[in-house]
Design a protein around this nucleic acid. Structure first.
Lengths: 110, 110
DNA sequence: ATCCTATATCGCAAATATACGATAATAGAA
DNA sequence: TTCTATTATCGTATATTTGCGATATAGGAT
């Protein structure tokens, strides 16, 4: 079977998972780090930086764009990519809120 | 093709991606939230809470345990699961460090 | 010993993700 | 117009993830 059950979970849970999913591949982490360092760059810059083909890099960029963490502005024949400040900050807040939950256990430790 | 290239990225990038991957499914987010709320619980408690079968829940728990975010102590015929405080805090720090990077762009906005 | 409960694992099916080459599409340069 | 550079998308192969039922395993209870 394996019919996806993602929709059976609530919005908050899905949102957190969605952001994490976008960050669940080292190539996409590397792309984001590169984008932060360079402030902005075109797809071919990323291709030169990573050990991946142009089409693969393009796909990873698309995924990051789909969740909104980055944006790409068309600049002639190129596309200028950069972090989407607002969405990035929002994602950071959501994930941080989740990860910084207090987990102290009273009574016996597990 | 599709030979995985994960190993061609550096340790830091892989670590971040690994943690995010563990959190990339709403069921696992729900499990963690439940575990934090309950402080500890057995597998069947989670099965009752989520719209998933026992074997599927067991798999999700295993993934969370593999990255170290939770631990399971054998308690007779049951397994008592809870957040692994130390690893949880460490993961939080790693992800937060990544997500809280300054992305302010000087000059023209992208 | 037999039964019951709880959990993990196996085997399988379906869905997604990863990766690449080839090709299309677009826009500037010659 | 033709050429070149840049990027997106298509098609395809493979790998991984998700999900479940069935089964194995382990420990208590009767």
């Amino acid at each position: 079977m394996a019919i996806t059950k993602v929709k059976e979970f609530n919005t908050k849970e899905r949102k957190i998972a969605e952001i994490c999913k976008a960050l669940a591949h080292p190539a996409r982490i590397a792309i984001i780090n590169f984008l932060i360092k360079q402030r902005e760059c075109i797809c071919s810059d990323v291709v030169n930086e990573l050990p991946l083909s142009q089409s693969t890099v393009s796909q990873h960029l698309k995924e990051l764009k789909n969740v909104g963490l980055i944006k790409g502005d068309i600049d002639g024949p190129r596309v200028c990519y950069c972090i989407d400040q607002e969405k990035w900050d929002e994602a950071g807040k959501i994930i941080n809120l989740f990860l910084s939950q207090e987990t102290i256990q009273a009574g016996k430790p597990c």
